[in-house]
């Protein structure tokens, strides 16, 4: 199954990736080839089979509700590209004031 330019652009937008024209072309053809190979899986009969999302049978794992020292604000902000007044600073999201 081929992936056309429009689909590549749509997926890139969903994935928040700004791709060059060259990348769009390359990924379009490579993803098509990979998915074509993966089409093999459709030959398997999975009628009524329960999907495996995790191989470990653990459910609703809880920890004791005991207070502990959290990561400090300064440590949490130490790797931020831009921090200001105890916050992560980002470009404006809303229009106007």
């Amino acid at each position: 199954m081929g992936i056309d330019d429009k689909q590549v652009e749509h997926v890139a937008k969903l994935a928040r990736l700004e791709l060059s024209e060259k990348e769009k072309e390359l990924f379009g053809s490579q993803l098509s080839a990979i998915l074509e190979h993966a089409e093999n899986v459709s030959a398997l009969d999975t009628q009524g089979v329960v999907p495996t999302s995790h191989s470990v049978p653990l459910l609703n794992v809880m920890r004791p509700d005991v207070p502990h020292e959290p990561l400090q604000q300064a440590e949490a902000l130490a790797n931020a590209p831009v921090a200001e007044s105890g916050h992560f600073r980002v470009p404006r999201i809303m229009e106007g004031e």
């Binding site: 998915l35 993966a38 899986v41 459709s42 398997l44 999975t46 089979v49 329960v50 999907p51 495996t52 999302s53 191989s55």
Partner: peptide, 15 residues
Amino acid sequence: DAYYLKAQKARTLIR
């Protein structure tokens, strides 16, 4: 459904 879910079901078959 066609890809991710199908693959998860196939994963069960491998197990």
